[in-house]
């Protein structure tokens, strides 16, 4: 990969990568850091990475960096999925569906949130998501199914309240 191709990657993928990191981490500074680190790694390993595979490489790097972040944060502040779900319980202040969905997304376990974002935002196949996250295709499908069921339950309960 040469400098021009690298700059093409920056133009094409930096926004998507930032979105992926920001939606997963909910911390813009950390998300920016992850994007920058991913691109730096891409440049350092430019001789090993083909230009067409650069996007996958960037998302894989970002995912691993995010996984490190989750590990660090869980050590500092352990929270169960149930408490997260309770925190994200629907209330009257959630007006738009989009906002509600975002809140429901936050309540998902990290891995489910990551795979569903990769699926919906970037349109990756199960196989490609598996390459990024290190899971097999079946595991990816199961995680996405569970994530959608959780989101659906969340939206359904709101519907009942309203």
């Amino acid at each position: 990969m040469n400098e021009d191709q690298f700059q093409q990657c920056v133009t094409a993928f930096s926004d998507g990568l930032y979105r992926f990191a920001l939606k997963n981490l909910k911390d813009s500074d950390e998300a920016k850091e992850i994007v920058q680190s991913s691109f730096e790694k891409l440049w350092l390993h430019r001789n090993k990475v083909d230009h067409p595979k650069a996007k996958g490489y960037l998302f894989t790097m970002a995912y691993h960096l995010m996984a490190d972040f989750w590990k660090r944060n869980k050590k500092m502040m352990p929270t169960s999925d149930n408490t997260a779900m309770q925190k994200a319980a629907p209330s009257a202040e959630y007006k738009g569906l989009k906002e509600l969905l975002n809140k429901a997304l936050d309540s998902l376990p990290d891995i489910q949130r990551a795979v569903v974002i990769l699926r919906d935002y970037e349109g990756y196949s199960y196989d490609e998501i598996g390459s990024i996250t290190g899971l097999n295709e079946s595991q990816v499908k199961v995680y996405i199914f569970r994530a959608r069921q959780s989101l659906k339950t969340h939206l359904g309960s709101l519907e009942a309240i309203l």
Partner: peptide
């Protein structure tokens, strides 16, 4: 409705 819609307003600032 659980399918996420990409927020095109989120852009990498740097």
């Amino acid at each position: 409705a659980t399918f996420l819609i990409k927020d095109e307003n989120i852009l990498f600032p740097h």
